[in-house]
Design a protein around this nucleic acid. Structure first.
Length: 573
RNA sequence: GCGCUCGUAGCUCAAUGGAUAGAGUACUGGCCUCCGAAGCCAGGGGUUGUGGGUUCGAUCCCCGCCGAGCGCGCCA
């Protein structure tokens, strides 16, 4: 029996007697923060006060008088401004233990829904190792996707691979220039090319595999570089040199660095426990003509105009600050154009809801994407964008640089190796996604021993330990008589367990996996508190079995929750 | 300048419009001859940046101001 639903029904019945014309009022039950306020509280009387023009306490009294009797409820009180507080019977409180043990790893799982969701996250340019900012997006997206799947939705996890743009060209030319250095070609390495050591490694690989095949004299390269102070224009000149001099071979270099970086990124994420169902190539949107079609469709519906040789999308008509270019005067499509095609493609694939997890610096991008979807006749409300705020790194009290191109940044891999995957995943979840995160590296290392994740994992290990010492048949515990569970800390723990399914629904609705991390901390706290106060392996068999059942149920919920966050559940530590 | 996001205990962070705003950490004092002390118990710590508004009720919703981050490109 779902107690919450039961109480809602009772209140609904009372409402029908007291105020039939308000029968449709939404009935909300919350779990009071204070134990003295009972197990559930309703503010129904206060909600009705305005419509009925009556003192809420009077309404509450009438409601309570009309409540049908229930064996699950031992006390109903009116308190404060007009709260109706319910206190449950001992049996109703402890029943959750049996429910957890019966459902096992499915406890808390929502009813299967046919609603198809897509969560797209990370989607970092494959131009270098992932850094700690990407790590936050990865941890958030992965936990969110797991949470939504557990809540019952049909979830697809997707990574958008930006394999078509200028950044990839810059990476390719960076590797090629490093390669030329290996043959002592006198070329200055541009300050705005990718500086990281991994670029040199790729150059070395290319030399090992293909010798001097891609060598061209420095003069030939420099001949393409314009005589200007503009560093970006000079870099573009070098890219042009690469394409001209290498011809077909440019595609090899480009493809090689792309696959190298993508493989590295993929391995990094897998080690972090972050998996994707689909790796979607931006280039495929061009190859299949989707970008052209998307722009043509906008053009046909009259949302495109020409100015200064470029094609502009009139996004101001859809609430954007200014209009945006979709096709440049040189004929190349902008990133925005492929993004329109990409989102239309997502919708065409039949997702009821598309969730994009973006870095907070992309917030200005939302109106134009939604605008383009609306202009294309799609329902922009099917797109939800969740912004994950920045991670600022501090080293020796100094804010560290996070530039990918400069190569001076802390990688996700370094962070994982320093503090461990579990602590990392949990630490990222310990704040709302819209809260900026200051990550002090020295602190992260020194704090790794009292990271809250160990507090939660320790609760799990303790339970495993006591179960091992008992050494009995755990399947018997599912049928244990729970009447001996009478202590305050036992009912508090039971209440916490009962909260889990509600929390799953709420956290998934709010796209708030951090709520799960906080819940697990609270659950572990309730367990430790109880475990310190009451002995489990007592002589009395009835008490022993009831407490073992409670411990086992707690372990089950810890497992269910931690696995959603991608955190391991050690038997000992 | 305009726009988005944020501002809560010394520090790091929570809080579906609800009751006395909570945890962790740090600090102080207790608890292992007994299931793991990576734990527990107790204590001090707050004008929720600020001024208004809506509401029976505001950390939460609306407006102004102050402060911080980010964005405002024919880059991605």
């Amino acid at each position: 029996m779902d107690v919450r639903q039961h109480l809602t029904d009772l209140l609904r019945t009372a409402l029908g007697s007291v105020a039939p014309e308000q029968f449709g009022t939404e009935i909300l039950l919350e779990r009071p923060k204070q134990a003295s306020h009972g197990d559930f509280a309703s503010n129904l009387a206060m909600q009705l006060a305005r419509e009925l023009k009556t003192n809420p306490r009077q309404i509450a009294e009438r409601l309570v008088r009309e409540l049908p009797p229930s064996s699950a409820v031992v006390k109903v009180e009116i308190a404060g401004a007009g709260f109706i507080n319910f206190t449950l019977s001992a049996a109703a409180r402890t029943a959750v233990v049996g429910a957890v043990l019966a459902a096992g790893h499915d406890f808390g799982r929502g009813p299967a829904s046919r609603v198809k969701l897509q969560v797209e996250f990370v989607s970092a340019n494959p131009t270098g190792p992932l850094h700690v900012g990407h790590g936050r997006g990865a941890a958030y997206g992965a936990s969110l996707a797991s949470l939504l799947a557990f809540a019952g939705y049909d979830v697809t996890r997707e990574y958008y691979v930006n394999d078509a743009g200028r950044q990839m060209d810059i990476l390719a030319v960076s590797a090629w220039l490093r390669y030329l250095e290996l043959f002592d070609e006198p070329l200055p390495f541009p300050p705005n090319a990718y500086q990281g050591g991994y670029v040199r490694e790729m150059a070395e690989q290319i030399k090992q595999a293909h010798g001097d095949r891609y060598v061209h004299p420095a003069e030939a390269v420099l001949a393409c570089v314009p005589d200007t102070e503009d560093a970006e224009a000079r870099l573009d000149g070098m890219i042009l040199a690469g394409k001209d001099l290498l011809g077909e071979d440019w595609a090899y270099i480009h493809g090689h660095v792309l696959s190298e970086q993508l493989a590295d990124c993929r391995a990094d994420l897998e080690e972090f426990g972050v998996h994707f169902d689909v790796w979607f190539s931006e280039r495929s949107l061009f190859d299949t003509g989707m970008v052209t079609r998307a722009v043509a469709a906008l053009e046909q519906s009259g949302h495109i105009y020409l100015q200064d040789g470029a094609k502009w999308f009139s996004s101001t008509a859809f609430g954007d600050e200014k209009d945006r270019v979709v096709q440049r005067d040189n004929g190349l499509y902008t990133y925005f154009a492929s993004d329109i095609a990409y989102h239309l493609n997502k919708f065409e694939r039949g997702f009821d809801k598309v969730i994009d997890v973006w870095g907070a610096d992309h917030h200005g991008y939302i109106p134009r994407v939604k605008g383009a979807l609306s202009a294309s006749g799609a329902n922009a409300d099917r797109l939800d964008v969740t912004l994950v705020q920045f991670v600022s790194l501090f080293r020796d009290g100094q804010k560290a640089s996070m530039s990918t191109r400069s190569g001076e940044y802390v990688t996700l891999r370094q962070l994982r190796e320093e503090v461990g995957n579990d602590a990392c995943r949990f630490f990222y979840m310990l704040r709302k996604s819209d809260q900026a995160l200051d990550f002090d590296l020295d602190l992260a290392k020194s704090e790794s021993n009292d990271n809250p994740v160990y507090y939660v994992q320790y609760a799990h290990a303790r339970i495993c330990s006591v179960l091992a010492q008992w050494d009995g048949d755990q399947s018997l515990l599912a049928r244990a008589d729970l009447a001996p569970l009478l202590h305050e800390r036992e009912t508090a723990l039971c209440a916490r367990l009962a909260e889990f399914p509600e929390l799953i629904q709420q956290a998934s609705r709010d796209y708030a996996p951090h709520a799960l991390a906080f819940y697990l901390k609270d659950l572990a706290g309730d367990f430790h508190s109880w475990y310190n106060a009451e002995r489990v392996l007592v002589d009395d068999e009835a008490t022993r079995h009831a407490r073992l059942a409670l411990a086992l149920a707690t372990r089950q919920v810890l497992q269910n929750g931690l696995s959603l966050l991608g955190v391991s559940q050690p038997v000992s530590m």
